[in-house]
Amino acid sequence: YKIYPYDSLIVTNSISVKLPKDVDRTRLERHLSPEEFQEVFGMSIEEFDRLALWKRNDLKKKALLF
Rank of each mutant, 00 (worst) to 15 (best):
residue 55 K to N: 08
residue 48 F to R: 00
residue 13 N to T: 10
residue 11 V to L: 13
residue 17 V to E: 15
residue 63 A to V: 10
residue 55 K to G: 04
residue 48 F to W: 07
residue 7 D to T: 15
residue 2 K to N: 12
residue 40 V to P: 00
residue 28 L to A: 03
residue 32 L to E: 00
residue 27 R to G: 04
residue 19 L to S: 05
residue 14 S to T: 11
residue 25 R to M: 12
residue 20 P to Y: 04
residue 59 L to V: 03
residue 9 L to W: 01
residue 58 D to I: 13
residue 62 K to I: 09
residue 5 P to A: 08
residue 14 S to D: 15
residue 48 F to A: 00
residue 2 K to F: 07
residue 24 D to G: 03
residue 17 V to K: 13
residue 4 Y to N: 01
residue 54 W to C: 11
residue 65 L to I: 05
residue 27 R to T: 06
residue 29 E to K: 01
residue 60 K to W: 02
residue 52 A to Q: 10
residue 28 L to F: 02
residue 44 S to M: 11
residue 43 M to I: 07
residue 39 E to P: 03
residue 24 D to N: 07
residue 6 Y to I: 03
residue 21 K to H: 14
residue 5 P to S: 08
residue 57 N to Q: 10
residue 51 L to P: 00
residue 18 K to C: 15
residue 27 R to I: 05
residue 39 E to Q: 14
residue 27 R to F: 08
residue 66 F to K: 04
residue 10 I to W: 04
residue 58 D to V: 12
residue 19 L to D: 05
residue 55 K to P: 03
residue 21 K to C: 14
residue 65 L to Q: 01
residue 35 E to P: 09
residue 1 Y to N: 09
residue 50 R to H: 10
residue 41 F to N: 00
residue 24 D to R: 05
residue 22 D to I: 04
residue 1 Y to K: 09
residue 45 I to N: 07
residue 54 W to P: 10
residue 59 L to T: 02
residue 45 I to E: 05
residue 45 I to K: 07
residue 9 L to I: 05
residue 32 L to D: 00
residue 30 R to F: 03
residue 30 R to Y: 05
residue 55 K to T: 10
residue 61 K to F: 08
residue 40 V to T: 06
residue 53 L to H: 10
residue 24 D to E: 06
residue 56 R to H: 02
residue 32 L to N: 00
residue 35 E to I: 12
residue 17 V to A: 15
residue 63 A to P: 00
residue 35 E to H: 11
residue 33 S to I: 04
residue 16 S to P: 12
residue 23 V to F: 03
residue 47 E to G: 06
residue 49 D to V: 05
residue 16 S to A: 12
residue 20 P to A: 05
residue 59 L to M: 12
residue 27 R to S: 09
residue 52 A to L: 08
residue 8 S to D: 12
residue 54 W to V: 10
residue 31 H to S: 03
residue 57 N to A: 08
residue 23 V to E: 02
residue 45 I to A: 08
residue 4 Y to Q: 02
residue 16 S to F: 13
residue 56 R to D: 00
residue 6 Y to A: 02
residue 50 R to M: 13
residue 18 K to H: 15
residue 38 Q to M: 14
residue 39 E to D: 12
residue 66 F to S: 08
residue 13 N to D: 14
residue 35 E to D: 11
residue 4 Y to V: 04
residue 30 R to L: 07
residue 11 V to Q: 14
residue 8 S to I: 13
residue 42 G to D: 10
residue 32 L to Q: 00
residue 52 A to G: 09
residue 52 A to P: 15
residue 45 I to W: 09
residue 62 K to A: 12
residue 36 E to L: 03
residue 64 L to P: 01
residue 22 D to H: 06
residue 1 Y to G: 07
residue 18 K to L: 12
residue 47 E to Y: 09
residue 65 L to R: 02
residue 25 R to G: 07
residue 55 K to Q: 13
residue 26 T to N: 14
residue 5 P to N: 05
residue 53 L to Q: 11
residue 53 L to P: 10
residue 23 V to C: 04
residue 51 L to C: 06
residue 21 K to P: 15
residue 15 I to P: 14
residue 59 L to G: 01
residue 10 I to R: 12
residue 32 L to R: 00
residue 29 E to N: 01
residue 50 R to C: 11
residue 14 S to L: 12
residue 53 L to W: 10
residue 56 R to G: 03
residue 2 K to C: 07
residue 65 L to S: 00
residue 65 L to P: 01
residue 2 K to E: 10
residue 25 R to E: 11
residue 20 P to E: 05
residue 56 R to A: 06
residue 24 D to T: 04
residue 3 I to S: 06
residue 9 L to V: 02
residue 27 R to V: 07
residue 38 Q to K: 12
residue 25 R to Y: 09
residue 1 Y to I: 14
residue 24 D to H: 06
residue 54 W to Q: 10
residue 24 D to S: 05
residue 48 F to Q: 00
residue 23 V to A: 06
residue 51 L to I: 06
residue 10 I to T: 07
residue 8 S to T: 13
residue 16 S to W: 08
residue 46 E to T: 12
residue 43 M to E: 00
residue 37 F to M: 07
residue 9 L to M: 04
residue 10 I to K: 15
residue 62 K to N: 09
residue 47 E to L: 09
residue 35 E to N: 10
residue 36 E to T: 07
residue 54 W to R: 10
residue 14 S to E: 15
residue 49 D to C: 07
residue 43 M to V: 04
residue 57 N to T: 11
residue 31 H to I: 01
residue 52 A to V: 09
residue 9 L to K: 00
residue 29 E to Y: 02
residue 4 Y to T: 02
residue 44 S to C: 12
residue 13 N to L: 08
residue 36 E to I: 06
residue 52 A to Y: 07
residue 1 Y to C: 10
residue 62 K to R: 12
residue 1 Y to T: 11
residue 43 M to G: 01
residue 32 L to F: 01
residue 56 R to C: 03
residue 63 A to G: 04
residue 63 A to Q: 04
residue 6 Y to K: 03
residue 14 S to H: 13
residue 6 Y to M: 03
residue 53 L to G: 09
residue 46 E to D: 13
residue 41 F to T: 00
residue 21 K to F: 10
residue 8 S to P: 00
residue 36 E to W: 03
residue 10 I to Q: 07
residue 49 D to F: 06
residue 10 I to N: 04
residue 60 K to G: 01
residue 35 E to T: 11
residue 59 L to C: 03
residue 61 K to Q: 09
residue 17 V to P: 13
residue 52 A to W: 07
residue 66 F to W: 14
residue 2 K to D: 08
residue 58 D to W: 13
residue 29 E to S: 01
residue 6 Y to T: 00
residue 57 N to S: 07
residue 42 G to E: 10
residue 12 T to F: 15
residue 38 Q to S: 12
residue 57 N to M: 11
residue 23 V to H: 02
residue 26 T to K: 10
residue 65 L to K: 01
residue 24 D to Y: 06
residue 32 L to P: 00
residue 24 D to C: 12
residue 62 K to S: 09
residue 33 S to G: 07
residue 58 D to G: 09
residue 40 V to W: 04
residue 20 P to N: 05
residue 58 D to A: 14
residue 52 A to D: 13
residue 41 F to K: 00
residue 21 K to L: 14
residue 64 L to F: 12
residue 29 E to M: 01
residue 15 I to L: 14
residue 49 D to M: 09
residue 41 F to V: 02
residue 31 H to F: 04
residue 43 M to F: 05
residue 7 D to I: 15
residue 55 K to L: 12
residue 56 R to M: 06
residue 47 E to M: 11
residue 18 K to S: 15
residue 62 K to Y: 06
residue 4 Y to E: 02
residue 24 D to L: 05
residue 35 E to Q: 13
residue 16 S to R: 08
residue 49 D to E: 11
residue 57 N to V: 13
residue 21 K to I: 13
residue 57 N to F: 08
residue 47 E to H: 09
residue 3 I to C: 06
residue 61 K to N: 06
residue 57 N to P: 00
residue 64 L to A: 08
residue 31 H to L: 03
residue 3 I to T: 10
residue 20 P to T: 04
residue 19 L to I: 08
residue 43 M to S: 03
residue 65 L to N: 01
residue 24 D to F: 05
residue 6 Y to E: 01
residue 44 S to H: 11
residue 3 I to W: 06
residue 3 I to N: 04
residue 11 V to P: 06
residue 59 L to K: 05
residue 2 K to V: 12
residue 33 S to K: 05
residue 32 L to T: 00
residue 46 E to H: 11
residue 6 Y to R: 03
residue 31 H to C: 02
residue 9 L to S: 00
residue 26 T to H: 14
residue 26 T to V: 07
residue 8 S to G: 04
residue 64 L to M: 13
residue 36 E to D: 12
residue 51 L to S: 04
residue 11 V to R: 08
residue 3 I to P: 07
residue 33 S to T: 06
residue 17 V to I: 12
residue 23 V to W: 02
residue 11 V to T: 12
residue 42 G to Y: 08
residue 4 Y to R: 01
residue 49 D to T: 07
residue 46 E to N: 12
residue 61 K to G: 05
residue 30 R to E: 02
residue 58 D to N: 11
residue 34 P to N: 10
residue 39 E to W: 15
residue 34 P to D: 10
residue 53 L to C: 15
residue 4 Y to F: 07
residue 37 F to V: 02
residue 31 H to N: 03
residue 5 P to L: 04
residue 11 V to E: 06
residue 41 F to M: 06
residue 16 S to K: 10
residue 41 F to C: 01
residue 5 P to I: 03
residue 20 P to S: 04
residue 21 K to W: 11
residue 6 Y to H: 02
residue 33 S to Q: 04
residue 37 F to S: 00
residue 18 K to A: 14
residue 57 N to W: 07
residue 5 P to T: 07
residue 5 P to V: 03
residue 61 K to H: 07
residue 53 L to Y: 09
residue 49 D to Q: 08
residue 32 L to S: 00
residue 46 E to K: 13
residue 11 V to F: 09
residue 49 D to K: 06
residue 20 P to G: 06
residue 9 L to N: 00
residue 12 T to M: 15
residue 43 M to Y: 04
residue 54 W to S: 11
residue 43 M to K: 03
residue 66 F to I: 08
residue 21 K to Q: 14
residue 18 K to F: 08
residue 9 L to A: 00
residue 58 D to L: 13
residue 25 R to V: 15
residue 48 F to Y: 06
residue 53 L to D: 09
residue 37 F to P: 00
residue 26 T to Y: 13
residue 60 K to Y: 02
residue 19 L to G: 06
residue 34 P to C: 09
residue 65 L to H: 01
residue 18 K to W: 08
residue 27 R to N: 14
residue 36 E to F: 03
residue 66 F to M: 09
residue 16 S to V: 10
residue 66 F to L: 10
residue 39 E to N: 13
residue 7 D to S: 15
residue 28 L to Q: 01
residue 11 V to K: 06
residue 12 T to I: 13
residue 20 P to H: 05
residue 49 D to S: 08
residue 56 R to K: 10
residue 13 N to C: 14
residue 18 K to M: 12
residue 9 L to E: 01
residue 34 P to L: 11
residue 35 E to Y: 11
residue 17 V to W: 03
residue 65 L to F: 03
residue 16 S to I: 10
residue 10 I to Y: 04
residue 16 S to N: 14
residue 64 L to C: 13
residue 1 Y to M: 10
residue 57 N to D: 11
residue 41 F to P: 00
residue 21 K to S: 14
residue 63 A to F: 07
residue 14 S to A: 12
residue 25 R to W: 08
residue 38 Q to F: 14
residue 41 F to D: 00
residue 5 P to R: 05
residue 33 S to P: 03
residue 22 D to R: 04
residue 21 K to A: 15
residue 23 V to Y: 02
residue 51 L to Y: 05
residue 50 R to D: 10
residue 22 D to S: 05
residue 36 E to S: 08
residue 29 E to T: 01
residue 23 V to T: 05
residue 33 S to M: 04
residue 55 K to R: 13
residue 17 V to C: 15
residue 26 T to P: 03
residue 40 V to M: 04
residue 39 E to S: 13
residue 16 S to L: 13
residue 3 I to Q: 08
residue 58 D to Y: 14
residue 30 R to G: 03
residue 10 I to M: 09
residue 25 R to C: 11
residue 44 S to N: 15
residue 64 L to I: 04
residue 53 L to E: 12
residue 42 G to F: 09
residue 5 P to D: 06
